[in-house]
């Protein structure tokens, strides 16, 4: 259970369009989903997870939303080692430089 103090850097979530009210050209599987939006900013009030609060973004906009994260982590990385890439490396070197030791 996370919570934010006023002044913390937080991420809030909003529903822009609820499921069933999506644009007509949207395919069926997406029609079943809400259109959600996330914005980060400085918390203007204390809040607990899922509670609504206002944030001030870096451009100075005030946005209201449900608290979902505090000091969000960047979760992307270099992934797991992919042996396929090693196989490609060996193959390429063999084709171009094969025989040379």
């Amino acid at each position: 259970m996370i919570s934010a103090k006023k002044g913390d850097w937080v991420q809030v979530e909003n529903i822009v369009l609820p499921a069933g009210h999506r644009a007509p050209q949207v395919p069926e599987d997406t029609q079943k989903c809400d259109l959600k939006m996330w914005v980060k900013g400085e918390a203007l009030q204390d809040a607990k997870e899922d509670e609504e609060l206002e944030v001030k973004t870096t451009t100075g906009r005030i946005v209201k939303g449900r608290l979902v994260e505090v000091n969000s982590r960047y979760v992307h990385d270099y992934g797991e080692f992919q042996p396929e890439l090693l196989k490609i490396e060996h193959q390429l070197k063999e084709i171009l430089f094969g025989g040379e030791k």
Binding site: A23, C33, L35, K36, M37, W38, V39, T58, T59
Partner: peptide, 19 residues
């Protein structure tokens, strides 16, 4: 997202859809 924030931009993120 990370690099935009690194350069000081506000990033507004959405789920999939042309809306």
């Amino acid at each position: 997202q990370r690099i935009c924030e690194a350069y000081g931009a506000e990033v507004v993120q959405l789920t999939v859809g042309p809306e």
